[in-house]
Each structure stands twice: as C-alpha cells, then as structure tokens.
Design a protein around this nucleic acid. Structure first.
Lengths: 153, 153
DNA sequence: TAAGATTGATGTTTCAATCTTT
DNA sequence: AAAGATTGAAACATCAATCTTA
C-alpha cells in the first residue's frame, strides 16, 4: 500500500533552509543595528515608530486596537501594554468607542506626530546604512518581491 | 560654500525602505509561525535548536560561549542566561576551561542530540510551510543571495 | 457564545554593575 | 586595562484567566 506523503511533514530543500536561516540572521542583525541607532539618539524603540506611523496614516478619526493588531503582528495583550506605555508618554490618546461599547479609539497626539518626525531621520539613516549601502534599488525591489510572497495568508 | 552630505544622514529610497519593511514583517510572521509549531509539538523555542545545532556541528571538544555569541547574534548576558536554562534542562554541560581560567567549555549532551533530532521534523516542516510552499528553489536561492549581502560586516 | 480588550502571575530580556583572570 | 562571563534590578513579553459588551 502506497503511503501518500503529507506536505506538512516534508523536510525543506537545502535552498529553502538556507533562505530561512539567512532571513532570520539578516533581520536580527538589521533590527538590532537599527534599534541601537535609535537608542543612541535617545529615541524610543522601533515598534513605537510603527504604531505612530499606522495612526498617522490611518483614518482621521483614529483606529481601534484590533485594526492595529494584524498590521503590527502583535498579540492583543502585547498591543494593549504597548499602547499603555506610549499613552503614558503622551504620544497617543485612548477614548471609549461610541459605536461599540467593548472597544476604544486610539488617536495620535501632536506630540506623537512630532516624535515620529524626529525619529525618521535616525530611522531612515539606519535603514540606509543597513540596506541601502548593500543593495541597489533593483536588488532591493527583487528582495521586496520575494519577501512579499512570504507574507500572504 | 557647498555642504557635502554625510551618507549616514541620507534618507533611504522607496525601494530600500520597502525592502526593510517587508524584511521585518516577513521574518516576524515566519518566526512566529515556526515558534507556534514547535510549541504545539511540546518543543522548546527555536533558539534552543540553534544552540544545539552549533554545539553538535562545532568542534568535538566543545565550544566557548564567546564563540557561540556571534553565530547566534546574542549578547553575552543573553547567552549566559540561555545556557543556564538549557543546561538546567539537561541538554548541555558546562565545565571550566583549563587553558583559560576566565572561560568555560560548553558541550552538548546525548539528551541534547536527541532533542535536536526530535525538533528537526517539526522545525523542518514549519520551514517548508512558511518558505518552501511559497518559493521554489530558484527563488529561495535568489533570496538567500540578497540576504547574504546584508549580513557582511 | 464570541469579540474586544485588559490584567495577575510568571518567564525572558535588557541595563548596568560586577567578578575573575589575562 | 581588557576579555570572558555572570548577576541584581528593571523593563518587557507571554500565558491563562478575566471583564465587558455584542
């Protein structure tokens, strides 16, 4: 009797395994270099920038935590505590949601917009140092496309 | 008077910024999916596998923490505490280094080798699901090459 | 019952300081 | 003084349970 294989139990090819290993290491190295640059400049961590960016680019009226969640790839409880810290620092505001009593609305404050503006030069320079100096635009575009394939559902 | 620009303060191109954003998200998504698979199977986290792999592939006589450090991209104190946990679980042994009184030698135990062997099917299947099902070998090789450019000094 | 969000307890990471040996 | 490694305290992340409203 032939045993049909289950793809879930298959070993990855050498090429696929190497891609994963390098993805892991390259991202770790890049992130820690970027975090270090922000810290040296007296700025909060990267994820604060991500939150402020989503809020700043999001709808005028603010966003709900559950909308932020999948964009930032954070679990509910993680986001809840992250928002606590950013709110305490004065960069966002929370208010109850009128349309849904369970929820809340998060909005960025003026100080939050200013922080994001001050973070960008540091963050951007760090991205340049880590990616821009090692890949040209064509290579960066190819990398983007390949990585985009990994992100779909 | 012309101001010559400092590359460190330069903003990255759109392509470079997009590559960074996708690198960050793709790696986060992939890692959390792999960690979840390991956890579902009752296995320890990914980084334990990395440590056991380095020890298993490393020199017969064991390795020093400072040799493990750059390979795993962990800070000294982080590695110290990680080794504590893995040692307590019985998967590695630490003994003083005779040649250098400040140091120690880490070796994998038989239980450690067995754990790594048990982890691989789960880990490999997760890599297949996350990378292998989305990229063919050519694409994976291209991705590897591009990511390799990011890792050099 | 499920969705949105929070929280207490616990585990892990980080910072800064420390210890020992080179 | 510098290298290898560890540690107390504080910050942060995670798990499981909870609370409120839909």
């Amino acid at each position: 009797m032939k045993l049909y294989h289950c793809p879930m139990n298959e070993s990855p090819s050498v090429a696929v395994t190497a891609a994963w290993t390098r993805l892991l290491r390259a991202q770790q190295a890049a992130q820690s270099s970027i975090e270090a640059a922000l810290k040296r400049a007296g700025m909060p961590p990267l994820v604060w920038y991500d939150v402020l960016l989503e809020l700043d680019r999001g709808p005028e009226g603010g966003m709900r935590p559950f909308e932020l969640e999948p964009r930032l790839l954070l679990p509910q409880y993680g986001l809840s505590r992250l928002l606590d810290r950013i709110e305490t620092a004065g960069y966002l505001e929370r208010r109850p949601c009128e349309a849904d009593g369970r929820g809340q609305i998060i909005t960025i404050t003026q100080a939050g917009r200013e922080l994001r503006a001050r973070m960008w030069p540091i963050y951007g320079a760090a991205i340049s140092a880590v990616i821009g100096e090692r890949l040209n635009d064509d290579e960066a575009a190819t990398l983007s496309e390949l990585l985009a394939k990994l992100t779909v559902s």
